[in-house]
Amino acid sequence: MWRNIASNALTILVVGAFLLGGVVIWGQKRYEAAGPLEAAICVQVPSGSTMAAVSRDLASQGAITSDRIFRIGADYTDKSGALKAGSFLVPEGTSMAEIVDIITRGGPSTCGTEVVFRVSVSRIFGEVRELDPATGVYVETAEFNLNEEDRPDAYTQVRAEPFTDYRLVVAEGVTSWQVAQALGMIDLLEGDIAETPAEGSLAPASYDLSEGQDRADILARMQARQSAILAAAWESRDDDLPVSTMEEALILASIIEKETGVPEERKQVASVFVNRLRMGMRLQTDPTVIYGITKGEGVLGRGLRRSELDAETPYNTYVIAGLPPTPIANPGQASIEAALSPAETDYVYFVADGSGGHAFAETLDEHNRNVARWREIEQGASGQ
């Protein structure tokens, strides 16, 4: 009798274990299977939230088939305690396992609203942008000038939201004064800027911002990045260049930056100035003269006068030999690399060609013909 009871109990245990194993396998398959989402969504995880709260939100949006399996899976993979606050993009068909990875991986938010503060050569402005989950493309909802006191309602609203991301985008060729001015106008930042950073010392790039960040710390990041870029380019520079220090390379790169209209021409533009320096020719470039007038504080907004082109100043490269005393803008990495590894050409002249780029020449006669063509283009445009 006892033998029969023991045998039956063992059978029950075996069957129970078999059924439990089947349930586990079934749950695991559901956890890793493609999800029910037919279109991407943004999932917001508030600070201090729990996996249970997130699972309920996901279930209500139709992103998962079972909030219980979602929580069990997160527990089983030891990710329940790794939840990160933020706004995250969940693509269509994402499995529960993949969603858990997205909301526990960390890093910047990948969805929702962002404010981009842009420093361009001619303008300092802000954009409020909302990500469209279906297309993965940010759609602009508002734009405003930073030097205006009144901010649009769209900006005021997103400033009060916890998941808004902020970025500063600095264009190549802007001056350090322009960057310092922009930082002073961004209201989410704190701290004073004691003095304008040295011209050329700031790396044009995109920088993440956060509420309460110190303005001086942001400038320090930009300077450290530019120093690293310059050092790397200097280390791999060409032989026999007519610049002997990294500062001279930075000055040359800033001129190349201001004279380049088409990115693909950077190395050719660089070759013109390098060839001129080697030959002892004056650089004869308008942007240096303009910088001598504005000191980098804003845009000249008019053409150069004959008297300005004839005046002997440290930045008038029509009069002085060699490089001006300082950079005239903050060059990007491509211009720094072009200055230290220019194209091998015999070009010593260039002029606009009407397409946004330049016509290059080796001789003065060839250059004069290019100039004549450019004058014809100008006259044709003015007559339309």
Rank of each mutant, 00 (worst) to 15 (best):
I102T: 01
V119G: 01
N4Q: 15
G16F: 15
A343L: 07
R221I: 10
V14F: 14
I328R: 02
D240I: 10
G184D: 09
L183Y: 02
V116I: 12
G280M: 10
S66R: 04
S210D: 13
V158M: 03
S210Y: 15
Y76H: 12
E161C: 07
V121Q: 14
K84H: 03
F144N: 05
R302A: 10
A9D: 09
A228K: 13
S236D: 15
M51E: 05
G301K: 06
V116E: 10
E161W: 05
A74L: 02
I377S: 09
Y347I: 08
W374S: 04
R56Q: 13
V371E: 02
A82C: 03
L189Y: 00
P342G: 06
I290G: 00
Q28G: 15
L189N: 04
H367M: 06
W26M: 13
D75S: 12
E344L: 05
V100M: 00
F18P: 09
R129S: 07
G298W: 02
R215P: 08
R306T: 11
K295I: 02
V262C: 03
E172Q: 10
N8M: 15
A231I: 08
I99D: 00
R369C: 06
D75N: 13
R129T: 01
W2A: 14
H367S: 10
Q44D: 14
V348E: 01
S87V: 02
I69P: 03
N368D: 12
E127W: 07
W234Q: 08
V262Q: 14
P152K: 05
A334V: 08
G126I: 04
I293Y: 07
A142W: 04
A249E: 04
G173T: 03
T164F: 05
G173M: 00
Q333K: 14
A343W: 04
D353W: 07
P331R: 00
R159M: 15
A321K: 14
E143D: 06
D101A: 13
I193G: 03
A52V: 12
E378L: 15
T156Y: 04
E161D: 14
P91I: 06
R3A: 13
V119Q: 00
D365C: 08
A85Y: 01
L230C: 11
I293W: 06
A224M: 12
A82P: 00
V262L: 15
T363K: 10
D78A: 12
Y155W: 14
R373Q: 14
L89Y: 03
G62D: 11
S382N: 13
